[in-house]
Write a protein that binds this DNA or RNA. Sequence first.
DNA 1: CTTCTATTTAATGTCAGACAATTGATGCTA
DNA 2: TAGCATCAATTGTCTGACATTAAATAGAAG
Lengths: 239, 239
Amino acid sequence: MTKKPDLSAQIAKDIRDSILSGALIVDERLPSEAELSDQFNVSRPTVREALKRLAAQNLIRTQRGATGGAFVKRLRYEDAYAHHITTSTLLVSMNDVSFETACEARFALERACAPLSATRRTPDHLATMRAEIHRQQQPGLSDERFCDSDVAFHRALVDGADNPVLSYQLAGAVEAMQPLMNMITFTARSREQIITLHTRIADALDAHDAAQADHALSELTEYTLLLGKEAMAERAKQA
Amino acid sequence: MTKKPDLSAQIAKDIRDSILSGALIVDERLPSEAELSDQFNVSRPTVREALKRLAAQNLIRTQRGATGGAFVKRLRYEDAYAHHITTSTLLVSMNDVSFETACEARFALERACAPLSATRRTPDHLATMRAEIHRQQQPGLSDERFCDSDVAFHRALVDGADNPVLSYQLAGAVEAMQPLMNMITFTARSREQIITLHTRIADALDAHDAAQADHALSELTEYTLLLGKEAMAERAKQA
DNA sequence: CTTCTATTTAATGTCAGACAATTGATGCTA
DNA sequence: TAGCATCAATTGTCTGACATTAAATAGAAG
């Protein structure tokens, strides 16, 4: 039952808890590395390792110079996004999540956004969606670019709900699917099908028609699952 | 436009990219700290800071001893959960996300799970939900405990969908709301109301009735928003 | 020959002290 | 007052050492 002491991890946990509990507030300066090593009775390198751990989690930022030091960082969506996406992607790839599971999660969440997006989408969101649809129609587009555009389209849909919490959680599900989507070979016919559905979705949001959007998204879910199943079968045959 | 070099951050990025790209696979051993300091032409403490960053992101684990070293870590849901939840919580609290926004996100996502949960929930999930409902009826229960039970109830609902990706993304939205929920004072009457809706949800899932579950969840959303609005008004009055 | 034990060894964990680089603050000068 | 040089505090980095851990190995006992 003896735990594994790891001073830098313990110290990081201590400070992290202080931030989480509100004992340390945003932009507050932590004691200097020298002071911390006194307080915790460890050497400066050990304190530094702890601080680097916190920095990796976007909990603090450091600044050099006379008035420098480590400061509690206001966690921004942009910073959290990158982390969230890589974690989600790794979770999917390292735990052998099936195409079906990832696909189901993604579209279930997107359908949760659709009604809100139908109400709140701005002309800007619609313009982005139309632009991506247009891009998807380009003849020489590689499969990978097609996927990129697909993600951009869906991101606009989600952002149309104008709820940053939703956007954040969704980003993980949408981006985590991309590696799986990239395993699909999109034929001209399947692209056409997808673009038709994208257009129906954009039209529905344009018309503030949540039911239509939901219906088109449902069809898109089914179709994507079918494409995935085909791609997996193809892959299995080659092995 | 001069960037800020920060060797340990750069090295961490290098290694992280190698993991993300698949150049380093799960359980593969990284070079020793001494070898890494040679490769990157930096000192061992700098390498260590980089490795600690990666460890904080659950990307590697380290092991002491003769055959020890740093190994690419299989990212587990349990590990990712804790990180995801603290990040989501901080995002909400540090960016002044309103009760309405967080609540809307949470219930929109839960409603996305409900149809799946109506199909797949096991007797185990139902039992958990019933147990939490029972707990919520206890007379002396503190508001905080009531919230805990509420979270547990909804977690069971989400887990009933039997989709780990969904559960993961949802956990962030549900847990991030807890601090906001804790600002609410639950009267006997409001608890009764919530318990009634929880019972309707459990009954609906029991009967595989997705429409009923959705309807009850919709009512619960409205009611929670109302409670939140009252709590915020109360709070504003006192200030 | 097998089994247990002691030793070796390679790795991470920690420490101490030093110097470099950065940057706001201070004080001097014109 | 404005501009400039200096100072001081702090993080960033390096060197070298020792402590701790745990597998592998060699040796002793049965």
